[in-house]
């Protein structure tokens, strides 16, 4: 499947941001992935062409990073963190729930093309364990019931909002965000400071603790 001319235009815009063109390769791969739901041969070749690289050079990079998919991903990519912190606090159970619910195993896609599932490593959401991601948008402090509910809503096309504010779109849309294109969602959820982020500040305020600051600042 040929990639659109629009993608080529956007690729060139990304390249222009960097002092050296090749630096744009990772975002470029996200961009071609956003069009096809995977990094296809056509995507590899377009990146190679635009950067003056061989397809081997591009594919060697694309296969190094786990977020670039070699097979088409479903509409949504559900990731369950199974790294010990999340895994032990419930990720293992969530994985069980997810795969039972969807009848697919790791790196597989449901027959209707709706969901792909993936065991993922630590997402830097340990204080929110166990964490799940939908199209890489965070669904913190997940539990099996919420997971089932989320799947049902996604399937029904109902709105699902990440615990970090952004509305969930689909895998391809997120890939555009990862390529650095403005998705208009930057203000979602204000500063995202929930009780977990505020745990220390709240405690400090409640207990009259603060860092002494010179110059009358507080």
């Amino acid at each position: 499947m040929p990639l659109s001319d629009q993608t080529r235009v956007e690729i060139r815009e990304i390249i222009a941001k960097y002092p050296e063109p090749r630096s744009a390769l990772l975002p470029m791969l996200h961009l071609v992935q956003s069009e096809e739901g995977m990094v296809s041969t056509a995507g590899i070749e377009m990146c190679a062409e635009e950067l003056g690289l061989t397809s081997a050079e591009v594919a060697s990079v694309a296969t190094f990073y786990t977020m670039y998919k070699r097979r088409p991903v479903g509409k949504h990519l559900i990731g369950v963190c199974v790294n010990p912190q999340c895994g032990i606090l419930g990720g293992d159970k969530l994985w069980e729930t997810l795969t039972e619910e969807l009848g697919v195993d790791n790196d597989e896609t449901t027959e209707d093309g709706e969901f792909s599932v993936e065991r993922i490593e630590c997402q830097a959401a340990c204080t929110y364990a166990p964490a799940v991601t939908v199209d890489w948008e965070f669904m913190d402090n997940m539990d099996p019931d919420k997971l089932r509910e989320t799947l049902a809503k996604l399937r029904a096309g109902e709105e699902v909002v990440s615990t970090r504010g952004a509305v969930i779109r689909d895998f391809c849309a997120t890939e555009r965000t990862l390529a650095g294109l403005d998705d208009g969602l930057a203000d979602s959820g204000d500063n995202n400071a929930d009780e977990i982020m505020l745990a220390g500040l709240t405690y400090a305020k409640e207990n009259g603790m603060s860092a002494p600051l010179p110059g009358g600042d507080e």
């Binding site: 990772l26 990073y65 890489w136 990440s162 504010g165 990862l178 930057a186 959820g189």
Partner: peptide, 15 residues
């Protein structure tokens, strides 16, 4: 920024 955090990536771009 690690790739798996679109919320942070869009936040930093906007910032």
């Amino acid at each position: 920024i690690r790739g798996e955090v679109p919320h942070v990536i869009r936040r930093m771009h906007a910032a």
